[in-house]
């Protein structure tokens, strides 16, 4: 079996894996980082979004081997110790989550969205999160959360 090496949440990891192992399976099963979720099988729902070298990506559509040498950040690595990322705080402050299943992917997508757009308006946020499905919130409080976090992230 081939060997894969990458940095996950700041820690170097190396493992022997079957070549068809998806990155999301590697994170969930091998590293037991279960905050990254699987909600569909067609790369539509966005529950599995992580950052690869700082860019958001759907971990269900990347082979672990493709991430060889990459810097991976998952939801577990977003906070600095006990200090939550402003996006995490904003989701709690603005009731941006209900069941929580889509939330981790939603937060990871939103962080990248704000990085790219600065202070996005409602329409930009809604368009930017088009690849993340939430069945609970109707998105309104997610939009509110992202806007609030954007203020903090800039400041």
């Amino acid at each position: 079996m081939p060997t894969v090496s990458m940095t996950v949440n700041g820690k170097p990891v190396t493992a022997e894996i079957a070549p068809n192992t998806l990155l999301v399976s590697f994170l969930r099963e091998n590293l037991r980082l279960t905050g990254t979720h699987v909600g569909c099988d067609t790369s539509q729902c966005g529950a599995c979004v992580i950052h690869i070298d700082g860019e958001s990506a759907k971990a269900c559509t990347v082979l672990a081997l493709q991430a060889n040498g990459a810097e991976i950040t998952t939801i577990e690595g977003l906070a600095k110790g006990n200090n939550l990322h402003p996006m995490q705080k904003a989701f709690q402050e603005n009731h941006g989550l209900q069941c929580g299943f889509c939330t981790t992917g939603m937060i990871m997508s939103a962080v990248d969205l704000v990085k790219k757009h600065g202070k996005p308006d409602d329409a930009t946020i809604r368009k930017g999160l088009e690849g993340n499905i939430c069945r609970c919130t109707g998105y309104q409080n997610i939009v509110k959360s992202v806007k609030a976090a954007a203020q903090e992230m800039e400041g």
């Binding site: 998952t74 939801i75 906070a79």
Partner: peptide
């Protein structure tokens, strides 16, 4: 919310 936003929900 805490456990869900830090990826510690247990589904």
């Amino acid at each position: 919310d805490k456990r869900f936003i830090i990826g510690k929900g247990r589904y």
